[in-house]
Amino acid sequence: MNAFRLAGDMTHLLSVVVLLLKIHTIKSCAGISLKTQELYALVFAARYLDLFIHFISLYNTVMKLVFLASSFSIVWYMRRHKIVRRTYDKDHDTFRHHFLVLPCLALALLINERFTFREVMWAFSIYLEAVAILPQLVLLQRTRNIDNLTGQYVFFLGAYRVLYILNWIYRYFTEPHFVHWISWVAGIVQTLLYADFFYYYIMSWKNNVKLELPA
């Protein structure tokens, strides 16, 4: 495992920690899109089907379990926790996320590395992850006061994607047969979705003003 990959996984983990900190400690999920969180839970459930079948490393297994447990518990908190769910900004979180699922599934049936159940589900999870941030970005645009933790959460998520691209570039030159078109194309699309957010995030940080996305 190279340094980019490790740094990518760590920023991904950090984003989850930041979000759990907000939800668990501050008991607030204001500015967080439940739709995006539901999509992530589905992404991890579909991708980690091989968890108990195919062992890669202890690191891999533990990280998978962490992402599965955290994504489902975040959804639980936002839907069921009696204090947290009251802070959910339901009226602004209106993205029709169900309409993302079917096209991703159709695409996975058409474009996959191998036409098997697990490979189709893997491709599905990759496509769905690429667009899962959209409800969150839409909600951010509609949120007047984006708090620091929410901004940091999205920033770390985006940073994770950038680092994964650097990891692929590194692997492409160091590993002889490392070509995964599906994850590369989907990963680049996913990263580009953050470009606008990154611009405003860095500007707000540079100018020391509160983060706000233009509608």
Binding site: R5, R47, I56, N60, M63, F67, E113, W122, N167, S183
Partner: peptide, 10 residues
Amino acid sequence: RSDTVEHDEL
């Protein structure tokens, strides 16, 4: 290529 695709990333 083998029968299983190696997905070693998260």
